[in-house]
């Protein structure tokens, strides 16, 4: 069974159609990288999947459960002018979300690591990691601490458990953010350009952590500009352009052998910069 299934996802901001019908699925333990040029809809896709944005159409199914489903709604008829006959009542398909309270809990299946970390500055590293488990999952402080320490081990920051975010480097902050997301035990861990706020040296330490999580079987969806990293770590790559998936497949195949002109052009530009 697929861990994540996305069906015909559409999202618009006003008149701007950002995602024009996205379909894909992910298996347990799979690492999927979403690449593509800026403005292609990568971040919007990620924000939709983590319920920070609401989609207009499409379904989001996590662990076999339809968190966002679809239903038919009647289209409001326009006011009739004189002499016009009423057109037939039409319906349109729209996404349906559960109630806020339900979505809050169901949404926990999707973890998110932000581009700019968003750690809580007033809490220590341990405090950042235990806050949600205690408030949301009603764990005791002891239970939450055990899990938090386990996750800090995973990202190699157990010695920083009592530090405050301002005392950490960018890479360390990002690793804490990863550990914080893992503490909620999500089905899929999503990354929004996890290294674009970091300098190259710090980038490496974050990428190493992501690679080691893959070895431990964590299912991950990563929006990234790091093409090399996507090829090395991701199983599958989706190339997003102008709100549509134009290439999808095995990471090495897509990156080394793109089929569409648009993807070829993009990957060529990227590699010429990296050289």
């Amino acid at each position: 069974m697929a861990v994540l299934e996305v069906v015909n996802l559409k999202k618009r901001f006003g008149n701007l159609e950002v995602l024009k019908g996205i379909d894909f699925s992910m298996e347990k333990g799979e690492v999927l990288a979403v690449i593509g040029s800026s403005g292609g809809g990568k971040t919007t896709l990620l924000r939709s999947l983590t319920f920070l944005e609401r989609i207009e159409q499409g379904k989001i199914i996590v662990d076999g459960e339809e968190i966002v489903s679809e239903a038919e709604f009647p289209v409001k008829a326009k006011k009739l002018k004189k002499g016009e006959t009423a057109p037939e009542a039409r319906t349109e398909v729209r996404s349906v979300y559960p109630k806020d309270e339900e979505l809050r809990i169901k949404g926990l299946k999707m973890g998110l690591v932000f581009q700019d970390f968003n750690l809580f500055p007033q809490y220590s590293v341990l405090g950042n990691l235990t806050l949600a488990p205690m408030l949301v999952q009603k764990k005791t402080k002891e239970e939450a601490t055990v899990i938090a320490e386990e996750m800090l081990e995973k990202v190699g920051l157990i010695d920083k458990r009592d530090a405050y975010p301002y005392q950490l480097s960018g890479g360390q902050k990002q690793r804490v953010a990863i550990a914080r997301a893992l503490c909620m035990n999500p089905s899929i861990l999503c990354f929004d350009e996890p290294t674009s706020a970091l300098d190259p040296e710090l980038t490496l330490e974050v990428l190493k952590v992501i690679a080691s999580l893959k070895k431990q079987g964590v299912t991950m969806l990563i929006v990234t500009h790091e093409i090399e990293f996507a090829r090395d770590v991701a199983d599958t790559v989706i190339f997003l352009d102008k709100g549509l998936i134009i290439e999808k497949g095995n990471a090495k195949d897509v990156i080394d052998n793109p089929q569409t002109d648009r993807a070829k052009e993009f990957l060529h530009k990227i590699s010429s910069i990296e050289d």
């Binding site: 926990l108 968003n118 750690l119 949301v136």
Partner: peptide
Amino acid sequence: ISVGQYEACQVLGLTKAQTFFKVILPQVIK
């Protein structure tokens, strides 16, 4: 307070009240 703080709370499943009193307000006070 940046929108990111609210969004971090949202993806961690905090209620609006928890978000305000546990995360936002302490930073506002400072």
